[in-house]
């Protein structure tokens, strides 16, 4: 097993500053903006982006949290049932621009589930996607509007995102762990 750091705390701070600026640039009317973090690590990322936007534009953006467990398409095949966490969308999202925030974009299936979940809360004007890492291997036609870092990866690798709020440290690492060989 090998481990490589691809994002340091300083890298992460600068990346989130850039994404916040991109969100400001693209959304002319910031009053319509809602940031929604996907459990677990999307939530602190959304809060940090909102704090950045607040400091650049002196405007507070509502931040929500979304749990997608009940919308997953692979529920029936999972050995371990995902623990459902409480979603919390603090404002009516009808007519709003919702920016979904997640740590890693991979197959795109979580994002499909998140969009279905959001639609049950209302009819947003549009949905945008911000991710810290895009690692490729999409299985659905999904792309991100704001990307922290593209990391072309192999399926044998794991991208591990750790955040101060959930793991005590800001860091992104690639762990290479080849699938164990089958016993003869």
């Amino acid at each position: 097993m090998t481990k490589k750091t691809v994002m340091t705390p300083e890298d992460m701070r600068r990346t989130l500053a850039r994404i916040a600026h991109e969100i400001i640039e693209r959304n002319k009317v910031l009053g319509h903006l809602v940031l929604v973090g996907m459990h677990t690590r999307g939530v602190p990322l959304a809060e940090r982006l909102a704090a950045n936007i607040a400091s650049y534009e002196s405007l507070s953006i509502p931040v929500g949290a979304l749990d997608i467990s009940l919308y997953r398409d692979d529920l029936a095949s999972l050995e371990l049932k995902p623990i459902v966490q409480r979603s919390d969308i603090p404002v009516n999202i009808d007519g709003k621009s919702v920016v979904l925030v997640d740590d890693v974009l991979y197959t795109g299936r979580s994002i499909r589930a998140a969009m279905d979940a959001l639609m049950d809360f209302g009819r947003p004007r549009d949905i945008q996607l911000a991710v810290l890492i895009d690692r490729g291997h999409r299985e659905l036609p999904v792309r991100a509007d704001y990307i922290g870092k593209n990391i072309p990866s192999s399926r044998d690798e794991e991208i591990q995102v750790q955040l101060e709020e959930t793991d005590g440290v800001d860091e992104v690492t690639i762990i290479y762990a080849p699938a164990p060989k089958e016993a003869p």
Binding site: T40, E158, I159, Q160
Partner: peptide
């Protein structure tokens, strides 16, 4: 820890 495999 969060890993992609766990998430997806």
């Amino acid at each position: 820890m969060s890993t992609l495999r766990q998430k997806e």
